[in-house]
C-alpha cells in the first residue's frame, strides 16, 4: 500500500488555475464510453440462493411524450429503481421515478448561449 500523501500541504495552484492547466486523469486502462443518448438500459442482478445461481436481466426503455428517456436508469436487488438525474434517490417503481422527473423538470429552461457540440443536430444547427 502506498504511503505517499500527495497534496498534504495543499495544491500549489488555485482550483481555477489547476482546471485551466491540468488535463483530467482517469484510472489506468479506463476508456470513456463512446455512446451518446442511450435509449435503453440493462441491469443484471445476480444472486446465489440455496445453491442456485440466479440472474435477472432487466431492460428499461422509457419514453415521455413518445421521446426516449436517456438518463441512466437501473434497478437494485430489492427492486428499487434509481436514475442518474437524482443520484441519491431510490424509487419503488420506474413509474414513480418518471413522475418525480416530470415534477422536477424545468418548465422553461434557460436560453442556451453555449456552444455545445454534443447537443447539436447533424448539420451543425444548435
Amino acid at each position: 500500500m502506498s504511503k505517499a500523501k500527495p497534496g498534504s500541504e495543499g495544491s500549489l495552484l488555485k482550483p481555477g488555475e489547476y482546471l485551466k492547466n491540468v488535463k483530467p486523469q482517469f484510472p489506468g486502462g479506463y476508456k470513456l464510453p463512446k455512446h451518446k443518448h442511450r435509449e435503453e438500459f440493462v441491469t443484471l442482478r445476480e444472486s446465489c440462493y440455496r445453491g442456485r445461481e440466479i440472474r435477472i436481466e432487466t431492460t428499461y426503455r422509457i419514453t415521455i411524450d413518445k421521446k426516449p428517456f436517456t438518463v441512466h436508469t437501473g434497478v437494485s436487488n430489492d427492486g428499487k429503481v434509481h436514475c442518474h438525474a437524482f443520484p441519491n434517490y431510490s424509487f419503488s417503481s420506474a413509474m414513480e421515478m418518471i413522475k418525480h422527473i416530470v415534477d422536477n423538470q424545468y418548465v422553461s429552461p434557460p436560453k442556451n448561449e453555449l456552444k455545445d457540440d454534443s447537443m447539436r443536430e447533424p448539420g451543425g444547427k444548435s
Partner: peptide, 19 residues
C-alpha cells in the same frame, strides 16, 4: 463556456446548456 469546452475536450458525456 470554458466548463463546457473542458467537458467536451475530456470526452465525458455531459451536455450543458444555458447562459
Amino acid at each position: 463556456q470554458d466548463v463546457l469546452d473542458y467537458i467536451q475536450s475530456s470526452g465525458v458525456q455531459l451536455p450543458m446548456s444555458g447562459i
